[in-house]
C-alpha cells in the first residue's frame, strides 16, 4: 500500500503544482458566476442555468484532470522515469494503481473546490441554500473521476502516446451514452463504462433527493470497473518492455 501511495503522491503533486489547474478553477468560478447575468437572455431561467453550468464545468474539470494522466504515463515511459521507479520493489500493477489513485484523489479535491465555490456563488446570487439534489449531483460528478482515471490509465498503457488523450476523451464522451445497451447485462457496466450512472445533472434542477444508497453503489461500481480496467491494463503492461 505504501508503494501505491508513494506513486499516487507523485501524481497529485504534479497536478497540484501546475499553475494551469488554479487558472482552470478560477475560470470555472467566473463562468459560473456569469450565469447571474443571463436572467433576461434566458427569461428568468438563470438559476437553472447556473446549476447546469456548474455541473458541466465540474465535469469538464474532472475530465481534464483525468486526461492529464494520459500524458504523464507515456512521458514517464518514454523518458525513463518509469524505469527508475519500476527498478524499485514496485510491481507494475502497483504503479498503475498508484497513478489511477493519485488522479482520482486530485480530481476529487479539485471537484470539491469547485463545488464549494459554486455553493458560495449560488448563495450569494439567489440568497438560497443549496438543495440536497444539487449537492448530490455534484458529488456524483466528483465520484465519476474513479472509473475515468482507470480508463485513462488503461488507454495510456495500450495505445501510442500520440493519440491516447484523444482516444480517452472520446471514450469518456461515449461512455455517457452506453445506457442504450443497458439490456446487455455483462457488457453494460461490466466491460463498457457506464458513466451515465453518474449523470444526475437534470435531477439537480428538478429532483429532491437521491438515495444515499445509490451514491454508495456508484462508488462500488466505480471501484469494480476500475478493478477490471486496471487488471486488464496490468496484464498488458507486465509484458511490455520498459525503455
Amino acid at each position: 500500500m505504501n508503494e501505491i501511495l508513494a506513486i499516487a503522491g507523485g501524481t497529485w503533486r504534479r497536478i497540484l503544482r501546475m499553475r494551469a489547474v488554479y487558472f482552470l478553477i478560477l475560470c470555472v468560478m467566473v463562468l459560473i458566476a456569469s450565469a447571474i447575468n443571463y436572467d433576461v437572455l434566458s427569461l428568468d431561467h438563470h438559476k437553472d442555468l447556473m446549476i447546469d453550468f456548474s455541473l458541466v464545468l465540474n465535469t469538464l474539470a474532472v475530465v481534464l484532470i483525468v486526461i492529464s494522466v494520459t500524458f504523464e504515463i507515456p512521458v514517464e515511459l518514454r523518458e525513463g522515469v518509469a524505469s527508475t521507479l519500476l527498478s524499485k520493489p514496485l510491481g507494475r500493477t502497483h504503479y498503475l494503481v498508484g497513478k489511477a489513485l493519485g488522479t482520482s484523489i486530485t480530481g476529487l479535491i479539485i471537484s470539491a473546490i469547485i463545488i464549494a465555490g459554486f455553493f458560495i456563488i449560488f448563495n450569494f446570487a439567489f440568497g438560497e441554500r443549496i438543495s440536497m439534489a444539487m449537492l448530490q449531483s455534484h458529488v456524483l460528478v466528483a465520484l465519476s473521476v474513479i472509473p475515468m482515471s482507470a480508463m485513462a490509465v488503461f488507454f495510456s498503457v495500450i495505445i501510442p502516446e500520440m493519440i491516447t488523450p484523444i482516444v480517452t476523451a472520446i471514450a469518456i464522451w461515449f461512455a455517457f451514452s452506453t445506457s442504450a445497451l443497458a439490456n446487455v447485462k455483462i457488457l453494460y457496466g461490466g466491460i463498457l463504462p457506464a458513466l451515465d450512472l453518474y449523470n444526475f445533472k437534470s435531477f439537480a434542477v428538478y429532483g429532491e433527493k437521491i438515495n444515499w444508497d445509490y451514491i454508495g453503489l456508484s462508488i462500488l461500481w466505480g471501484l469494480a470497473f476500475s478493478t477490471f480496467a486496471l487488471s486488464l491494463a496490468s496484464l498488458i503492461f507486465r509484458q511490455k518492455d520498459i525503455k
Binding site: 443497458a182 457496466g189 496490468s234
Partner: peptide, 27 residues
C-alpha cells in the same frame, strides 16, 4: 489477474444493472 477481471465484470455488470433501474425510478 484473470480471476479479478472476471469477478469485476460480473460484479460491475450486476451493480450497473441495478443502478440503471434505480436511476430510472428517480428520473
Amino acid at each position: 489477474h484473470i480471476v479479478l477481471i472476471i469477478a469485476a465484470i460480473l460484479i460491475g455488470g450486476a451493480i450497473a444493472g441495478h443502478m440503471h433501474e434505480e436511476q430510472n425510478k428517480q428520473m
